[in-house]
């Protein structure tokens, strides 16, 4: 019941509403029972499928009914079984299923079931031998994501599906997705989802890592190193955001990651230079916006780092000020301050 306004008592218990709801419940139960009965009996005829589609259009979370459709579609899409090797039929069935899903997703763009089912259909659809139209199929899926991400730029289901589609899409380079994140960030730099995707894509676009990490194996993607010019650009981008609005956390969380990444992957001299520059930036922001939380916190952290700019005394002052100005997180600031003495 996310975001649905609570009814007044009078409205909730009005005779009209109670009767309406009672009738709706009865009809719903009837339809649901009819669908589950067909599923139990394994009636995979067109009529049953159409009926089930009708119920799913109203309540797309009924995962069992999607499963039933998968059972029905699987041999068709995999060109197996009695249904034979009819590719045209497979394409038609897949397209029909995608149309149903699109209707469901328009109604409920955050349904785990629907997104999963769509993935399942698209994966089999693109695996069909007539892969000539793969690109257009996947382009269309990216287009659907564009549309839904315009309606809700933070829909993480949709972002995830987009990554899935791009992973299937051979013609889609991570660079073009990086451009997409830049576009979304330009539209609204509070779009944390876009910053997040950007952080992952940067490592995808710059597949450099240290020899030591390569030898160590494991989670190499996590350890990839961003080259200096990329870091410069990202620092510049994020700076535009927090100067425009220093209260926006997306940019600051991204900045914290960039600083951490520099500290972890660069030489001592490089770290020193970068931290020096960032300290100067924070001082400038604080000159325009004295007492602003994020630049103070950022500065405190920069000054806590073991560089030539290290100044634990000032860092403590900043943390102590923050504990007063941002009392909700006073516990964190106190712990951060205490950690400076360790």
């Amino acid at each position: 019941m996310h975001g649905q306004k609570r009814l007044t008592k009078e409205a909730r218990y009005s005779q009209q509403r109670l009767e309406q709801r009672k009738r709706k419940a009865k009809l719903y139960a009837e339809l649901s029972a009819a669908c589950l009965e067909r599923r139990r009996e394994g009636r995979r005829d067109e009529e049953s499928l159409a009926l089930i589609a009708k119920l799913l259009e109203m309540n797309c979370e009924l995962y069992t009914l999607w499963n039933f459709r998968k059972e029905h579609l699987e041999p068709i899409l995999k060109l197996e079984g009695d249904d034979g090797n009819d590719e045209a039929r497979a394409v038609e069935a897949a397209e029909k299923e995608l149309a149903l899903l699109e209707a469901c997703l328009q109604r409920n763009p955050k349904s785990y079931c629907c997104w999963q089912h769509r993935k399942w259909v698209v994966e089999l659809h693109t695996a069909l031998p007539s892969s000539a139209h793969d690109a257009s199929l996947l382009d269309r899926e990216v287009g659907l994501c564009d549309l839904l991400l315009t309606a809700d730029e933070r829909n993480f289901h949709c972002w995830s599906y987009r990554r899935f589609v791009c992973s299937l899409h051979r013609g889609k380079e991570p660079e073009s997705e990086l451009d997409y994140t830049a576009e979304k960030i330009a539209q609204n730099f509070s779009n944390y989802s876009a910053w997040h995707y950007r952080s992952a894509l940067l490592k995808e676009c710059n597949k450099t890592t240290t020899l030591r990490d390569l030898e160590g194996g494991g989670d190499v993607a996590y350890k990839r190193v961003l080259p200096p010019h990329v870091l410069d650009e990202e620092f510049a981008l994020v700076k535009e955001a927090f100067y425009t609005e220093p209260e926006d956390q997306s940019a600051w969380l991204y900045h914290a990651w960039l600083v951490g990444h520099v500290a972890e992957t660069r030489t001592t001299e490089e770290v020193d230079e970068r931290i020096g520059a960032e300290v100067a930036t924070m001082e400038e922001v604080l000159e325009v916006e004295p007492g602003s939380k994020w630049p103070q916190l950022c500065l405190a952290r920069l000054l806590s780092m073991p560089t030539s700019r290290e100044d634990k005394g000032r860092a403590k002052e900043l943390y102590s000020a923050l504990a007063g100005e941002d009392p909700k997180r006073a516990g964190y600031y106190r712990d951060a301050m205490a950690a400076l003495d360790r």
Partner: peptide, 23 residues
């Protein structure tokens, strides 16, 4: 364990699958 860790993001949080946003 390593699958869970592969879902870790730039903010040290975790998403549903590798590459998915922290939630």
């Amino acid at each position: 364990v390593s699958f869970v860790l592969s879902c870790r993001n730039f903010d040290e949080g975790f998403g549903a699958r590798p590459g998915d946003e922290t939630h």
